[in-house]
Design a binder for these strands. Structure first.
Lengths: 183, 183
DNA sequence: TCTTATGTTAAATAAATTCTTAACAAACTT
DNA sequence: AAGTTTGTTAAGAATTTATTTAACATAAGA
């Protein structure tokens, strides 16, 4: 390989690394480990990768790549692919950020809605019991009522969040906010 | 205080704790420390709190409360209030989850768009240089073009994310997805 | 102005997370 | 079926993050 060709090749790597760094940095705000973030960002510029290629490219251990890739599969940012002829598993990164966004946030928000709504329902039941209990003093009843109402109000948010998830899943959000806008 | 009144009082605490636990658990998925998550969830049921009250209530150190409250102020989930007569600073939790949602995600997404868009622009400039460079071999040029196009395509997502932020900030999203829906 | 109360910064400790080495299990080849 | 390659699980080491204790700064009140 000629010297100048080698130089432009390393310049390509540099250019990619700028984006890889930015993606990795924002991703670890998304609750994935640095290894997983770097891995996804690296795969974003690759067609497909095997565990051994990941290890070589990132200079990390194989178990680290194995767990990272699994985590990325969980949040649907990486998929396993079938590669005939190779015994090694191959993986591809989801390169459509719209789909990554959808999978990640919908999963996250659904979890949040479920967990908090369940707690709210249980808690409200408790407050009702306190209110109905003849042994409760008036100030306790008043407090219970107040908290009950506060929780009741908060439900509107969780219902809205559920609607948001739904509109993302069924694509209707893109009627309201088109993917490509007029510049 | 009578025995039965005490019992209903502790039942109120139990009922609150269910919701506090759920909120705190989902919040630490949002990148805040457990202390900050617990603090916000606790404040959600309080009118206002001073640092000393926080420390007593959560049984944690004052510096921990101080840094937690600051972090919560950064993401606009807590605000400082003016309480005449008291030398102590008082703080209130943002109890409207719609506003918390708005502040948190808009901040986060704007940061993501800015950081990644900047990296993409720089990176694309580099690829253009490589493409124009007469010393670049054809395969290097082809690769540079491919990456350039991939980045160009990804911009649509970041523009869309910006639009989403805008529609949340100006409230137009609530025309598409109303806050209170028909059940 | 001096003292006391409140809040923050800095250093040190404790706890949790991330990654690695090593042992193991599964599956493909020969 | 035995051996080899590949991937995962488990245990341990290392790093990072969170929290506390202690010292400091700031501002209010005496």
């Amino acid at each position: 390989m000629s010297e100048s060709s080698e130089r432009s090749r390393s310049k390509i790597e540099e250019a990619k690394d700028k984006v890889i760094g930015a993606i990795a940095e924002t991703m670890d705000l998304y609750g994935v480990t640095p290894a997983a973030a770097n891995l996804y960002a690296t795969m974003y510029f690759k067609d497909q990768m095997t565990l051994d290629e990941m290890r070589t490219e990132l200079e990390m251990s194989k178990p680290s790549m194995s767990t990272s890739v699994r985590k990325l599969q969980d949040i649907k940012m990486v998929k396993k692919t079938f590669t005939r002829g190779s015994r090694k598993h191959t993986y591809v990164a989801e390169k459509n950020f719209f789909r990554s966004f959808m999978e990640f946030y919908c999963l996250m928000w659904e979890r949040e809605v479920k967990m908090n709504m369940e707690a709210i329902e249980e808690s409200q039941d408790d407050f009702i019991e306190i209110i109905k209990d003849s042994a409760s003093t008036p100030d306790v009843v008043a407090e219970a009522k107040q908290f009950y109402d506060q929780l009741e109000e908060s439900k509107a948010y969780y219902l809205w969040l559920n609607d948001l998830v739904e509109s993302i899943r069924n694509g209707r959000i893109f009627e309201f906010l088109p993917k490509e806008q007029a510049k």
